[in-house]
Structure formats: structure tokens, C-alpha cells
Amino acid sequence: MADFQNIIDTLIEGDQEKLLSLAQSALDEGISAKEILEKGLMAGMDIVGEKMEAEDMFIPEVLMCARAMTAVINNLLKPLLAAGDVSAAGKVIIGTVKGDLHDIGKNLVAMMLESAGFEVYNLGADILPDKYVEEIKDKNADILCMSALLTTTMPMMKVTIDAVSEAGLRDQVKVMIGGAPVSQDFAEQIGADGYASDAGSAIRLAKEIMKR
């Protein structure tokens, strides 16, 4: 019986070296890479997300956990996982809208989504509506995440959603928005599917939205 709790605790501590050695021992014991990923790493990151939302953890600590998890996946698990073993939680296109260069919060959400098992395509900042549309098509995305920090760039979210609709992709993707001036009301106004006020709730919303 693998000690998943120990893996979970070690992940939460962000101790990369110890996490690698625990994962290696689990593999040596014959535990499958898929099980280690799901019952250990993913379960741990779920708790990290909750702690972050409850302000029990500092952001750099959260990122340290994410980094430790990625190291285990890339160094140990990836070669052992069959293509079907890791069904990504969903495919996400994320970026800051045209005219806006702010990307700290957006990058945080991207990193957190990734460690929560999503396949994330982080386009960067100052992204044209057409670029979003192109990427959604190309990556066959499930979720579009947009961020804006300026009241002056907020309208670009609506413009982008309209562009997605015109391209006939609106039924394919759910749209999530975030950023300091953005609100739930605004999300409803422009026809987005959801709003998250911080990275922690963004992860929760993304998981919830995938079930809709």
C-alpha cells in the first residue's frame, strides 16, 4: 500500500527532492504512475488550491509546490504514462486582452491551472481577438481565460467574445474572465460563463465549468 498521504504532505511542503524520492519509492513498490499522479500529486494540489484560497499559503509557496509536482511528472512519471492515462482536466487558452500588458495574475492562474491538471496554453499579454480565435481552433480548447487590469481594456473582453461567436466557436469554449476591475456583474453583462476574483477561485471555477 503506497503512502499517498506522505506524498500529499511532502507536495504541500514544496519539498522537491523528497517528493522525487517518495515518488521513486512508490514506483519501485509497483504503484502505477497514473495512481501516483491522481491519488498523490493531484490530490495534494487540490489541498494547495484550497489553502491558497483560505490565505493559509503564500503564492511563492504555492508555486514551489507546483514546481515540485512538475519535476516529478517530467522526470519520473511522463515516460511511464500511457497516452490515455492522463486525460487533461481540460484545455485552456489564457491571455491578457489587447492593449493591456499586465500579466502577473494571469500567469499565476496559468501556473495553478497547469498544476491542477489542465493543459494550458499561455498566450501572453496584449492579445488580439483574432489570435485567441486562432488558438482556440488550433488547440481545440475547452476554456478561454481572459484577463484585464485596466478599465480601458475591459471592453476588449466583449470584443473578443464577439469574435469567438462570429467564428462559430462560442459553443465549444466556456469563457472565464478575471482582473482587478472585473466583476461577476460585468461577466454576465458581456456574456462570459464565469468570473474569478483570484487564482484559487479560478481553479475551482475551471473545474466546475468543465462539468457544466
Binding site: 484560497e53 490565505e55 503564500f58 503564492i59 511563492p60 508555486l63 514551489m64 514546481r67 502577473i104 500567469n107 499565476l108 501556473m111 476574483s197 483570484d198 477561485s201
Partner: peptide
């Protein structure tokens, strides 16, 4: 945000215990 320098130093900054900094929603 995820650099070693940040990791090494962010805790040296002050954080409130009672004064509220969270967003309105939180």
C-alpha cells in the same frame, strides 16, 4: 514571482495578521 530570489526573500516583508488585505469577494 517564481524566481529563487523571490522564494528566498518574500517572507522578509511584512504581512498583517488582523488588517484585511484580501479582495472584496474574499
Amino acid at each position: 514571482i517564481n524566481s529563487d530570489h523571490t522564494l528566498k526573500n518574500y517572507k522578509k516583508r511584512w504581512y498583517p495578521q488582523l488588517f484585511e488585505r484580501a479582495s472584496y469577494n474574499v
